[in-house]
Simulated scan of single mutants.
Amino acid sequence: MSYLEETYYYDHQSADIKNMIQEFDNEELTQKEKAVGLYLKVRDGWRYDPYHIRLKKEAYKASALVKRNSGHCLDKSIILIAGLRGLGIPARIHLAKVKNHIGVERLIEKIGTNELTPHGMINVFLNGKWLKASPAFNKELCEKCNVAPLEFNGEEDSMFQEFDNEGGAFMEYLEDYGHFEDVPYDFILNNIREHYGEIYNKYEGLKEIRL
């Protein structure tokens, strides 16, 4: 598996994805420069929104997600992977379960827990090695939460910030589900059903929900 293929979800030959990556489709840029630039564009170009949950497979297509101005960690990871593949850079999705220590009250009110799953991030292949990167939290949200924006230099892993600027707990990884060749729709849906059963049963059959 080269992790460059176009798939139903990573439809990087679509006009919308080509338009998104156009500024980086430049032979003068290195693969690392392209990856870092696109990471920052996705990180800050789509506002993080954990309260918008998608239940139908068509809602997870990169060309559909890129038309929005906000997205869940899964959404933003899918957009970034499609863009990277469109630039000829191998990329794949990586899923985990995380615990949020910021904004806990609203999360519990809306979702019933401050444990978020599946959390989406990416693996990108640069300079002969796989790197992890999470484009979920946009810069404005990080400033609001008093945490430094998560940077990516194309040489080291860039995962969630463990602490805020005051040293308080911010994000915690609870379980690693590993990486997948394509968007694992059935796994995601079963994960939502298992961890958020009340929400799933209430809205089953809908394409997406806004909590």
Rank of each mutant, 00 (worst) to 15 (best):
V147E: 00
K97N: 14
L107T: 10
P184N: 03
F137H: 02
P149T: 09
L116F: 06
F160S: 03
P90S: 12
I188F: 13
E23T: 11
C142D: 13
I79T: 00
I122S: 05
K99M: 08
P184T: 01
F152Q: 10
V104P: 07
F24W: 08
K18R: 06
E5M: 10
N123K: 14
H12V: 00
F125P: 03
Y10W: 09
N100Q: 12
T113M: 07
H119E: 10
C145L: 15
V98R: 06
K34G: 13
K56E: 15
G168V: 13
E155T: 07
K76R: 10
Y10R: 08
I17F: 03
Y60S: 10
G167W: 11
K18M: 06
Y9E: 00
K97Q: 15
N123V: 05
Y200I: 08
M171Q: 05
G83F: 03
K99T: 07
T117M: 02
H101A: 07
L206G: 09
E6P: 03
A59T: 10
D11N: 15
E6D: 04
D16N: 04
E198T: 12
F170D: 08
K18W: 04
K67M: 07
Y173C: 15
R85K: 01
I199C: 00
E6I: 00
Y185S: 07
G128N: 11
Y51Q: 08
K144I: 11
K61E: 14
E28A: 13
S134W: 00
K57V: 07
A133K: 03
P118E: 01
Q22C: 10
D44T: 01
I209Q: 11
Q161E: 15
L65E: 15
A96M: 02
D176K: 09
Y3C: 09
N26E: 12
H72R: 09
K34E: 06
N127R: 00
I89F: 02
Y3S: 06
V42E: 10
N146P: 03
L107A: 08
K202G: 13
H195T: 09
K99I: 10
I79S: 03
N123H: 05
S63Q: 11
L189I: 15
F170M: 02
E181R: 02
V124L: 00
Y39E: 05
Y203E: 11
P184F: 02
M159R: 10
L40N: 10
I108E: 06
D186E: 15
T117D: 05
Y8N: 00
R193W: 07
E6Q: 00
H179I: 11
N19T: 12
N201G: 09
V42L: 04
K139I: 14
D25A: 13
H72V: 12
G197P: 12
Y60F: 15
F180E: 13
Y196K: 09
K110E: 00
S2T: 04
G154E: 00
P50Q: 02
G45C: 07
K110L: 00
V66F: 01
G37R: 02
C145P: 02
M121C: 04
R68M: 01
